[in-house]
Design a protein around this nucleic acid. Structure first.
Lengths: 99, 99, 99, 99
DNA sequence: TGGCGTATCTTCTTCC
DNA sequence: GGAAGAAGATACGCCA
């Protein structure tokens, strides 16, 4: 009987060891990423900006737009932006683009 | 002699208690903030957006602009944006605004 | 009429500004704490240990005991500790000291 | 000539895409771990305790002992524990066990 | 080049 | 249960 104090020991051990294995793999990937960013910086790129780009590419565009719309609404209410922004004007054909 | 095992006990105690006092004050402010946001949501505002606005107002505008400029440069290099954006065209007077 | 896009602007502004004020005060306290820990390290203390002590003093003793008991139970189930530890044996007077 | 604004575009793109690939793999592992802990909780284990055990198994035992020793030292300096604890007395054979 | 201050990243906790 | 915030650990960059 493998139980200790009401604990199913083999089952517990299995969870622990599976988690440790996954942790190791994760750690390895993090190491790879760290090296990649070091190399990236080494050739003169700004790794911070690169990471930001990745975040933007990963984000759901729809959700991002929705949030930005509400943010814009609130900012206009606070006078942090003109009541109408350039995009809104453009959308209604009030802007004449150059030939 | 107040030292225990090479430790200056009164000094250690002083640090601990000062830190605990500061923690308490911080905790109280966090409680106030939590109530404020609850009230904010209660009248129909989106507290998440409000917090984002506060972060934007707190950020250094110069640094923010600089970062955005580099972000834009990288995105254009990746073809995620047109080689020229609306602002750039506008800056060179190629846009005709409505009367 | 102060509403912009269905937003009660003065009310929104009030929330934002009250939150910003609280944030500032919180920031100041965090700064104080940072300085305190720097001073603490400066005289040779280990700030990490100090923080741990503060957490322990703040925590509910019962809950802390309970967690430790469960940790011990799990570790014994995994064979990381003897099925019985020294304290338990000691408590029942079953310890035979070296001849 | 693939440069845009002084940026070596293909090189930048390569970094971004390699990073995205690594991110995806990392994300997948995190998902696996999340599922594992959910399953672990589902059969009645305390995942928080399990994670703590994993941290302990991963940590350097010497460093762990050292930290605990310092914590004990500090706590005794603060009077949170007796100047000597039971283990220390026991180690020197000064314990008188009940009849 | 090694310590130190800063900043990022991860993890843990709390709230919704 | 999932997301937002806070706290802790870690890594980077600077300056001596």
């Amino acid at each position: 009987m493998p139980d200790v104090g009401g604990i199913n020991s083999p089952q517990l051990r299995s969870f622990i060891e599976r988690a440790e294995r996954l942790h190791e793999e994760k750690k390895a990937l993090e190491e790879d990423l760290k090296e990649l960013w070091a190399e990236c910086r080494g050739v003169g790129f700004d790794s911070k900006i690169c990471k930001k780009i990745i975040r933007m590419r990963a984000a759901d565009p729809d959700k991002l737009d929705e949030e930005e719309a509400m943010l814009d609404l609130y900012m206009r209410a606070l006078g942090m932006r003109g009541t109408e922004d350039a995009n809104a004007r453009d959308a209604r054909g009030e802007v004449e683009h150059a030939a």
